[in-house]
Design a protein around this nucleic acid. Structure first.
Lengths: 356, 356
DNA sequence: ATATTAAATGTGCGCGCACACAAATTATAA
DNA sequence: TTATAATTTGTGTGCGCGCACATTTAATAT
């Protein structure tokens, strides 16, 4: 019983004042005499008061509206994963009066983002989770959010200048280096031509992808592996006829030994071509445990996946926001998720382990 | 406001009875007439009542004592990691009246386990977390715990027969297979001799380790890689003079291309010999991100680590117990953590990401 | 000096649940 | 029928916090 935490009541008793006074001091609402203030502060200085968050939450009985601003999940299964993380977090907090309103913008149109972001601004939510894949377009909105005192959390893409409550994502440079290490391993010591391939549908993403490429190249630079000849390939809309031509041209090169693809959707697109063209000697390394990618990995077309954990990213984003709003918890400024390596032999262990 | 959750009060109103009656039905405490029971159940059938756990926890205001029964963390840094997971969980729940009492037994002495387990039994905790590395010795204790209605969670080693509230660990067979895949990769296509090495200090563990070996061998069987010649080596106490002799004899074999070590402590022991004997062409694959292992990985002596996440295992164990005791949450019967692959290039991303 | 205003302090209530206990109803005994 | 026991039902209280409001004390005006 003596291990129990100190309550406001105890502080009041120790300081010889009423709980109301202690409350006013704790929240510095003023209306406290210097004398009383001193007494309370003296006690607070001695003991380490930690409010009972459970009681606080119960008493508050407020409802919180969180806005999630992200690309349309129908356009890319990667974003569908993010969406499911949001839904999972929402389900967990619904009963405590938290609702999440999702706002989807078109992955390929900057104007769509603006439009949707304005809608969010109008709605004045209590907190905002956003995947700011467009750089310039987002800045003024964050200015606005900050002015209105609405906390915002970024995920997937970081923009440190806007000083968010928290960012959740990964170190992209290191991610590229890891991709290179895996590629190197998969090559069995033989050298040859390696391709870095970006399918850059959404132009907002290019900085993002370049960072991965830098890391990829850095690895081979450090290793001084001149045996590998690394080329870069930028493709755009997979639906255009030029796409297939360009990709096929690349895959036809007999010297090509491996492809590092910088996005999750691009991974299964390339995998499908590799399978169709029977180029099973080309090692493929890409991103994320999307349904399609899982299929190709089980077939052996994809050698490694680096898990960006889109679901977990979004899930944590909502959680941090909720923690900040109702439990007054400080969220970590940067939550960099580990770079998880998925191979044929540990794939199932990831699939069966919940959100993780 | 209409999104708010349904309260007991609401159910009472809908059923036309008092909250007390609803409470008795929900907790089936009896003392309810058939008529009232029917009415309440009818309402409950219609709506999806989810109790407000915050309110429940607040009201309960009980203190819970959890006993953690595990090997002495001073004997092996692996267990020190587990310990830190327990401490972290304890810190998180302390203010809600949860205390954790740790009971350490000697990793090498079955009798020590018995002794400590008896102490736990006498203390009658509200819940027990245990790493049951000795098989036969543990069974009668679980019988006792079950009779007394004390929930227990296992981690690290599973004993499904004792029907725990939850088990937290990994699929060991798959873990061995993964080790083999990584070894295969690290070999760069060259074949040769591979060694599976167990340093089996605590005899209780042997089944555990055999399972990993089975997986390791299975991988090469499936691949039909007769090019690799796999041998098994059982070593015991590293402090005995024979130990060094036997290990050196193994490492001296020029055909030896790789070693798969089945425990975390053994990993850095072997790494130290590899370094000393300058056998840097032997690939080493082992377990866990212990301080020493991290050092050897950064130096390039260890090629891959499979992370068993001892810290997280214990952390989750306490959390499940707490969730069950105060929030009445059902813990998952089997929480199999993913088999995380650690390499030089993603090591830092794991180190910087907290408990994960 | 008393009346009025301002500042400081203390008290009460609700959040939703669990549990103890009081009240009301029904069944049984005298 | 009335008295008593057994069963069923309802009410009240506390958990710790935050906030609204009542009360007390001090400062100022008349």
């Amino acid at each position: 019983m003596n291990v129990k935490n100190i309550r406001i009541k105890d502080i009041a008793q120790l300081a010889g004042v009423s709980v109301g006074t202690v409350d006013r001091v704790l929240h510095n609402r003023g209306r406290v005499s210097e004398d009383a203030l001193k007494k309370v502060l003296a006690v607070l200085d001695q003991i380490d008061y930690k409010p009972n968050l459970i009681a606080r939450t119960l008493g508050a009985n407020k409802t919180y509206r969180i806005a999630a601003l992200m690309p349309n999940p129908d356009q890319d299964p990667y974003w569908a994963s993010s969406k499911s993380g949001i839904s999972q977090a929402e389900a967990e907090w619904l009963r405590y009066g938290v609702t999440v309103q999702s706002y989807f913008f078109n992955l390929y149109e900057k104007d769509s983002f603006k439009e949707v972001a304005e809608a969010v601004t109008k709605d004045r939510p209590d907190g905002i989770l956003v995947a700011p894949i467009f750089y310039h377009e987002t800045l003024p909105f964050f200015e606005q959010f900050k002015q209105e005192g609405i906390p915002y959390v970024l995920f997937n893409t970081n923009i440190p200048e806007v000083d968010p409550l928290s960012f959740i994502g990964q170190n992209l440079f290191q991610s590229g280096k890891l991709g290179a290490e895996l590629m190197h391993l998969a090559q069995n010591g033989e050298s040859g031509m390696l391709a870095v391939l970006h399918i850059n549908e959404d132009l907002g993403n290019s900085v993002h992808l370049a960072e991965k490429e830098k890391g990829f190249r850095e690895y081979f630079l450090e290793k001084n592996h001149s045996g590998y000849n690394i080329t870069t390939h930028n493709l755009y809309n997979p639906n255009e006829p030029t796409f297939e031509k360009e990709l096929s041209a690349l895959l036809d090169q007999p010297a090509l030994k491996g492809i590092f693809v910088s996005t999750s959707k691009a991974t299964y697109i390339v995998a499908s071509y590799l399978e169709k063209l029977q180029r099973n000697n080309i090692k493929l390394i890409g991103y994320d445990m999307l349904q399609e990618n899982i299929r190709y990995m089980k077939k052996g077309v994809i050698n490694f996946l680096i898990n960006q954990n889109p679901k977990r990213q979004a899930f944590l984003g909502i959680n941090h926001l909720v923690g900040y709003l109702i439990l007054r918890k400080e969220a970590p400024a940067n939550e960099l998720l580990p770079l998880e390596i998925i191979s044929k032999e540990n794939l199932d262990s990831y699939l069966s382990s919940g959100i993780h």
